[in-house]
Amino acid sequence: MKALLAPFRTTTGLARWLLVTGLVLVALFVVLAVFAPWIAPYGFAQSSVDGVKFTKLDPPGPGHPFGTNDLFYDVLSRVIWGAQTALLVVLLSVLLSALIGVPLGLLSGYVGGWTDRVLVLIMDALYAFPSLLLAIVFSFLLKNVLPSGVVAAALSLTVIYIPQYFRVVRNTAVSAREATYVEAARALGAPNSVIMGRYLFSNVIQSVPVIGTLNAADAISTLAALGFLGLGIQPQDAAEWGFDLSRALDDAASGIWWTGFFPGMAIVLLVTGLTLVGEGLNETVNPTLRKRRFATVTLPPRPAPSDLSETQNALAITASDNSAEGGGK
């Protein structure tokens, strides 16, 4: 709990305000995603109610607050269900990439040698590749193999983000490997697995939440881009903002704004929210970026001249008490 609240206690001013804004935005979408079945007026692939088909491209109005699109779907429902898809895909891909990237980075950094060189080479190659291109290639390959579009999309995003965890964790592990406490653990007779699990892991893991949130923001836009290119999730599988946006392209020319505006806004807001949270966390994890808050020191009032000597005696006593076991840090 203490660790969870740390970002709030340690940030100030603008930084805290940004973090809070980000959290509110993200929380909003999480609520939409979790309670989509209750919040959304219709299903994501529902084009009629009680056998009566919706009007195609109906402008926002009482029946459809955000209007309908060219597939007869209710835009509001698509936006709400889209939050579920987006967060599910992002959560899956971020978790998976951390689950693979972190242990690989730890192993590579601690073991070194050939294992390290080979892994670094592979990861650098993946990292150097434009991420969207990589995602396109993988979703193309996975689309026909996996039954679920959501899982296929999540896996193609996973591949992009593994190198990021790997690089950060490996570099921290390389420097932590030389730390005295690792040598001390070896001197205790700890096997390598224990050293990695109990001595390195907790010290290299700090920056992972930051990468996670920043990756999540990136993953939202990459997922939308995939959908926009028609490589993502199909409209009957789940609602996906990028796909809706691509359908809306034609409408925009004829002055139909609502089919593109609402999914677009959803993407922008969620990406902004996640980025703000990531940057906010970054500030707390990398304190060097942060301007330190100094606690103001209040001095006791000056004693009257008469009892000055007594205070000095008292001070002398506390001073010697402190030096008894003060210890250099």
Partner: peptide, 29 residues
Amino acid sequence: LQMVFQDPHAALNPSMDIETAVGHPLVIH
């Protein structure tokens, strides 16, 4: 055979409490 290090701060894992750290040799073995 055991060792005591020059820098006690560096010799202790910063994210391990004293009970775990001091007892860890017993757990390892």
